[in-house]
Amino acid sequence: MTVTEQRPAEIVPRQPASAGREGWIRRAPLLPALIFTIIVTQLPFLFTIYYSLQSWNLVRPGSAQFVGLDNYVKVFTDSQFRGVAVNTVVLTAGAVLISMVLGLAFALLLDRQFRGRGFVRTLLITPFLITPVAAALLWKTVLFDPTYGLINFVLSPFGAGQTDWISAFPLTSVMVALVWQWTPFMMLLTLAGLQSQPHDVLEAARVDGAGSFAIFREVTLPHLRRFIELGIVLGAIYLVNTFDAIYMMTQGGPGTASANLPFYIYQRAFLGFDIGQSAAMGVVVVIATIIVSTFALRLIFRSFQTEEG
């Protein structure tokens, strides 16, 4: 009989003799990337805060002087800034949601067996790969041109022959170009979601008597939920920084009708040379982003949790 008797003393995890050193050895490979990222991406924000308290115009050297919160007061009383902020929300939300709906529809079309599936998928993702500047140029000229553009040619049978789309609907035109570029991203994401569905669950649902639509609503859509959320969050992260398309297509105009915050701040800093105020706007944008992204991060965090769980 070899049954061991329990000794009273409690067993505690043995600490390796060199626990501290071991920890640093494990951490070491992480440090270069971490330090580099902090220096290049975090330090500038500290400067931004500092500049935002200065009145400083680049074309007048030595003009920098401390003005406290003056720049912030100007930002919040600037009606253009408010308009541009609204533009940013409209542009980002509109582009993200429309491309998500289209992307989901395309993904459903692609999630079937048919001849040339890989080829069609390749065609569909290509707009996402095109250099944004080139894509914006393409829309501005070959597609939206009032006289020679393809859009007007296609629409001419419907009597919409001569519209100057970019002048008439600047913000919408930019959004169309962005939707065209970002639909493939949403499609890829939801397609990955569709293909990660366990096959047996779908079969079980079919055996249980569910029709195609019922399966989609009851099984597929709940499964896709996390992919859709992730797509919206990631799409928003990338799209809120939209600059290229506006720069190429409308230059934010007419006036600031199609400018978003990145473009407006760029204008203030590099065309208006007003460092202090553009820095203040930057700080405001960062604070707004932090508020939105704490919410977004939580969503993402949940996604990664379920992935690892």
Partner: peptide, 20 residues
């Protein structure tokens, strides 16, 4: 010889004083 493994202090040992 009384070999033991406990993952966190105070938890139930995964291997409890094993003699072989």
């Amino acid at each position: 010889d009384q070999a033991s493994r406990v993952y966190t202090a105070g938890a139930k040992p995964a291997v409890n004083r094993l003699d072989l």
